[in-house]
Design a protein around this nucleic acid. Structure first.
Lengths: 172, 172
DNA sequence: ACGTTGTAGTTAGGCAGCTAATTACTGGCG
DNA sequence: CGCCAGTAATTAGCTGCCTAACTACAACGT
């Protein structure tokens, strides 16, 4: 699977420089590299997470939904789930469909609002989370294991400021 | 500012702490937060990029394929494209299908190898890249505009070490 | 020469994300 | 009271990514 490939998706400064020069632009190659590498890193981490989740019969999206449910006491409406997961309501419908098929969550009609529904974490869903937790959190921790505590703080700070920059772009 | 929006899902330290405590694990909440925030940031940047690309009738994947093609002189086999983009060959087939439909690339049979094909960047494809370049690179640069040059260096270093950590996980 | 093994590309089927359109219901307003 | 605008959830259809299976060809080994 092309794992030993040297050029396996680590964008280089040279690539950035070449492209910028090719179009005669006045842009800092390093700045471009930072943005591109961040995307690449995020994608890679996401992919690794996906592999891990699939061992427990879940996906990242489904896991996040379950975890969010548990975090708020075990039940929540699809709309609020969509908001807190940062995905569309349609996506939540799909995720809940899958989770319901496996008996990890259940749907109930809302008592107060005839339009609304409530997604409930089942005992089986909670158990699944418990099963995954140790390995899951250990893996997350291992990812940043190469950084000192101080470096983690710095990283969080820089990450936050970059995300703000992204936000500024999308709000135009 | 970013907090008042219910949809601005920035995972919090409290969430991490609560989950870890709930399962009685011995994990550093901050470490977990770093990993989760990195994924979140990568996804967000990717989403923003997707929006931008869609204005030019492309997607991130298609753009990356075009850019990679140009970067290597305008032609390359699907296999090599898959390797350098870090996706499967099947995905490349799909991307090329779409790009071919719009006349941005063309397929030719390889002269040397009867199994192989060559994907060629057309004049229209090159033009499309030229059209996008200024805005594209300026946006990328703007994303890291909040960081000093020194900070960008630090960020790249930390990012690299985290990615190494991810790699270590996936290779087991 | 011929069969085995490996590689290139495609196809088929699945999941997750999106938008747009649909259906059902709420709630305000004339 | 009834109509209408807005909201909740779903559905349909697109893209991008994956794996697995398939076809066609290449490169060897005897």
């Amino acid at each position: 699977m092309a794992q030993d490939e040297p050029g396996s998706e680590a964008p280089t400064l040279d690539q950035a420089r070449r492209q910028i020069e090719h179009y005669g632009l006045e842009v800092d190659p390093q700045a471009v590299l930072v943005a591109v590498r961040l995307m690449s890193a995020g994608a890679r981490l996401g992919q690794a997470a996906e592999v891990h989740f699939s061992r427990f019969g879940l996906s990242a999206g489904r896991y996040r939904l379950l975890a969010d449910l548990e975090d708020c006491g075990g039940e929540k409406s699809p709309s609020r789930l969509a908001a807190s997961l940062g995905v569309s309501r349609a996506t939540v419908t799909g995720l809940v469909d899958g989770l319901e098929r496996e008996g990890l969550v259940a749907r109930r009609a809302s008592a107060e609002d005839g339009r609304a529904a409530v997604v409930i974490l089942t005992a089986r869903g909670a158990q699944r989370l418990r099963d995954m937790a140790p390995e899951h959190f250990e893996r997350l921790q291992a990812v940043v294991g190469a950084l000192t505590v101080a470096e983690r703080g710095v990283f969080l700070d820089l990450l936050g400021r970059v995300v703000q920059g992204v936000g500024a772009l999308t709000e135009e």
